[in-house]
Nucleic acid binder design. Structure first.
Length: 106
DNA sequence: CTTCTGACA
DNA sequence: TGTCAGGA
């Protein structure tokens, strides 16, 4: 089930674990370890194969970057959680504030 | 491709 | 603790 280098499967639009691994620059075993730690949650095929989307690849890149900076998996979990949480808060807040600004200064 | 297990810095 | 290697 090997996919061509760097190219996502056209039918599924996602990467196999092997291409995701050397795309990020690590082994497949580590990616499973990251999933076990809850750092990434790739979808699964009917056969049980992991399907890494482009968003998952970006997430994996952030993980390795944070890993190089000396954080452990627990720390990275907090960072990514806070990052998602803050993103939600920011988007809702900017929507409200723009709505507020329009009413304050028409 | 999957899971599990053991070993190393 | 995270990473890597081998085998089912």
């Amino acid at each position: 089930m090997t996919t061509p280098d760097g190219a996502p499967d056209p039918t599924t639009g996602v990467y196999a674990i092997s291409v995701a691994a050397d795309l990020v620059g690590t082994g497949v075993q580590n990616l499973r370890a990251y999933e076990k730690a809850g750092l990434v949650t790739p979808q699964r095929t009917a056969g049980g194969n992991r399907l890494y989307s482009q968003a998952d690849i970006d997430r994996l890149r952030q993980i390795t970057a944070l890993l190089d900076q000396g954080l452990n998996l627990a720390g990275i979990t907090m960072v990514l959680d806070l990052r998602d949480e803050n993103h939600q808060l920011r988007t809702t807040r900017t929507e409200q504030s723009t709505r507020q600004r329009r009413t304050d200064h028409p």
